[in-house]
Structures are given as C-alpha cells and as structure tokens.
Design a protein around this nucleic acid. Sequence first.
DNA 1: TATTTGTATTATAAAGTGTAATGCAAATAA
DNA 2: TTATTTGCATTACACTTTATAATACAAATA
Lengths: 123, 123
Amino acid sequence: MLLHLDFSSDIPIYIQIRNQIVMGIAEGKLAAGEKLPTVRALSEECGINMMTVSKAYQLLKQEGYIQTDRRAGAVVKHPEKQTGPRPETIEGLKLRLSELRLAGMTIEDTLKLCRTLYEEGEA
Amino acid sequence: MLLHLDFSSDIPIYIQIRNQIVMGIAEGKLAAGEKLPTVRALSEECGINMMTVSKAYQLLKQEGYIQTDRRAGAVVKHPEKQTGPRPETIEGLKLRLSELRLAGMTIEDTLKLCRTLYEEGEA
DNA sequence: TATTTGTATTATAAAGTGTAATGCAAATAA
DNA sequence: TTATTTGCATTACACTTTATAATACAAATA
C-alpha cells in the first residue's frame, strides 16, 4: 500500500487517500477481497492521524468500494456491475474533457489518452 | 449566463462557477472574446456575494481561461494551443476513468461516452 | 464629473479539516 | 477466561477555508 500524499495540495488528505484507493482497485493493484491496511497501520505509515484514515475508509464504504468488518478490517468489495456511474463521475469527466479541449487537444488525442490511461491498469 | 449552483454541494460555490464557465467555454456557449457578466451582476443574479464571484474570476484568470480588464470587465480568452493539459486535468481524468471502470463500464462504453460528451459541445 | 469596472481591505461567522487522547463493542487468539 | 486487535465513537482543540458584509480605491468610460 504505497500512498503518495501531498500535504501542500488543495485536496484534503482523506480525499487523496480515497482517490488513490479507488484508482488502485481499478488498476488491479488492490484485488477484490484483499484486505486493506488497518486504520492504525496506515495512519502510522503515512504519519497522519487515525481519524483521517478512518474518514477515508468511511467514505469508501459509503460509496460501496470497500466493506468494513469489526474484526476483519477493511476489505475491497467485488464491484457490483449493476450500478451505473454516479452523476458526480459523469460531471467530473465532462469537466476534464472540457479542460483537455481548451488545452488544445483534439477528440482523437483525447480518446487515445483515455484508452492509454484505461489500459495502464490492465498489465 | 445560466449557472446552476448547488448550495448543498461539497464543492465550494466559487469552484462551481469556475467549472461551469470552463465547460461553457469548451462547449462554445461562451465564445472567445465574449464578455462575462460583471462580478456585481453575476453575484446579484445568483444571490451570492460579490467576492465569491470575484474569487472564481481570479481563479479563471490565473488558469488562463479569461482576461480581466479594469474597465472592460472579464473576457473569454482565446485558447493558446501551445499549452498542454495541466497535471491536475490528467490526474482527475484518470480518477474518473477508474470510477467508470468500477461502475462496470467497459473501455468501449467509456470511449463512447467520452466522444458523446465531447461532441455535445460542438452543435 | 459621475459612473462602472475589478479589486482590496477589514471584520465576522460558519463550516471543513486534521490532530490528540481516550474509550468501547465485537471478534479472535492465547 | 483473559488479552489483544479491529473499526468506530467521542470530546476537545487548532487551523484553514469558505462566504458574507460593508466600504473604498484606481482606472477607464460616458
């Protein structure tokens, strides 16, 4: 579990943790059923407070990405394919596509980039 | 200039304004050279404080999306095609692609969605 | 000269973020 | 049983961020 936290970022730490775990699952670095570090272990490893990690786990649990058990700790959930993407995901994607367009990227460049990013987590 | 502000959202108002203007430019709803509403007008229209709008404009100015003039107000900048996408854009895109994957979308579904979203602003 | 523009200033309130210390209920291991 | 580990709750505190409010300023325009 290697997290890269940027303490000078605008993005709160617990959101950074949440995001990196979501990407980790999508990339297969974290397999379904795999145990996540305990909140105590991860907080010590990162040099942050226990409750900050707990906040990230609670968010991930609420969003359905992980499951927490009193004793077993936090475990990566098997994705339920029924659930479509959340509205925030679509809206966030739209924003990034807008930024890419304004940065001068064509639709073809953009799709190529998306494919590359998508496939990076399949190796 | 129709902004849809969600006052119960986690996203700060000035960020919501910033995001919607960026998407508006990308979609052509706001043409290059076009004048944006004055901070006073927009703040009254949205029922929010002047400084909140000013904050959004300052952010957009700093990111190169608009230009502000003492008297002319805020104007949409012509995008300089030289500048590639910012790291935050790539990282944000990667996160959304991860979320789509975990929501059960295939790479083909994803690319189709991207193309659709991209082309929605070309009509 | 009077008005409009973005911006600055100052003050204030509310919410969000992160830390710190402590404890609890449940499950496991001894 | 007893001890330990787990996520989680609680309480308190400090700091930052966000948003409002009122006022004012320099520059440009009418």
